[in-house]
């Protein structure tokens, strides 16, 4: 491939004389090393191959007829081979962002969002989990932990059958972790944004759930490097349930963690999480992170 690019820049080609001599065949005074160099060049250079084929037709009609005979003999057999199946070839591009096992999980995450949205809208009318002033929306309550589930699914030993192979490849590690996390966030965050906009809770900004959401995702990854991403996700969800969901539902109003005053804390957690992930990036390329 390198040689092709070189040829494209027009660095060096075989001279017409050498190609003509080569086309005429043996006994034309080409030294063995010249032949070798020319053949190595021809393998990589399209321009010179074209020149050679032109030279063969003019200087060596015998060879040209021989090639023609072989070609006409082969043609019917080539036509007889089965055509490649027409089925759309799954491109590497999609699987490089999402493993196939992640798809059902992401579907679940999005449907949970929709369900929370539905309950919020219904709750407005019936006073259940009321999202009026002082109340708290379910979307807001669930938003921070939803991406965590997606991230866990992309690294779980139980959910990804090829986890050991994945851990052993050069692309494993921080690079792949970030790629898969980014794809989870790219799907979940817009769904949450739409849900947040639709519920339209007064006084709730996107930052109020987006920041905890990112903070939890980075914490999961940071912890995951130590105890395995799945365990980390379970721990993070448990902490979230104990510290935020239970008190909120009990008191039917947003706890400190979800109010604007909590934002600097979430910012700090996010920074810490990202720092740990970067510092321990080698941990994602060994089996331990897949537990």
């Amino acid at each position: 491939m390198k040689a092709d690019r070189k040829a494209g820049r027009g660095v060096e080609h075989a001279s017409v004389r050498v190609i003509d001599d080569y086309a005429r065949g043996s006994g034309t005074g080409l030294a063995a090393d010249q032949v070798w160099a020319l053949e190595a060049h021809l393998e990589a250079c399209r321009v010179c191959r074209d020149r050679l084929s032109a030279a063969v037709t003019t200087h060596a009609p015998a060879v040209a007829t021989l090639v023609g005979t072989v070609w006409s003999g082969l043609e019917p057999r080539l036509a007889a081979t089965a055509p490649v199946s027409r089925r759309r070839h799954r491109s590497v591009r999609l699987s490089s962002w999402l493993t196939p096992t992640m798809v059902p999980w992401l579907a679940m995450v999005v449907s949970v969002t929709l369900l929370a949205l539905l309950l919020d809208l219904v709750g407005n009318g019936f006073g259940f989990g009321s999202s009026g002033s002082g109340g708290v929306s379910l979307v807001l309550l669930f938003a921070p932990v939803l991406p965590v589930l997606g991230v866990a699914a992309s690294w779980s030993q139980g959910l990804d059958p090829a986890y050991e192979l994945t851990a052993s490849v050069p692309r494993a590690g921080l690079h792949l972790v970030l790629r898969r996390t980014a794809s989870v966030l790219a799907l979940v965050v817009p769904a949450l944004l739409v849900a947040g906009w639709a519920t339209g809770v007064p006084g709730v900004t996107a930052a109020q759930w987006l920041l905890p959401c990112l903070a939890f995702t980075s914490t999961t990854l940071a912890l995951g490097g130590v105890v395995g991403v799945t365990r980390a996700a379970v721990a993070v969800v448990a902490v979230w349930a104990a510290v935020v969901v239970t008190p909120t539902l009990a008191a039917n109003r947003a706890t400190f963690a979800l109010q604007t005053g909590g934002l600097p804390v979430w910012g700090l957690v996010l920074t810490l999480g990202v720092g740990v992930v970067i510092a321990r990036r080698g941990a994602y390329s060994v089996l331990g992170a897949h537990r």
Binding site: T166, V169, R171
Partner: peptide
């Protein structure tokens, strides 16, 4: 193909 991509 997917494995080849993972193996850079």
């Amino acid at each position: 193909e997917y494995m080849a991509w993972l193996k850079e």
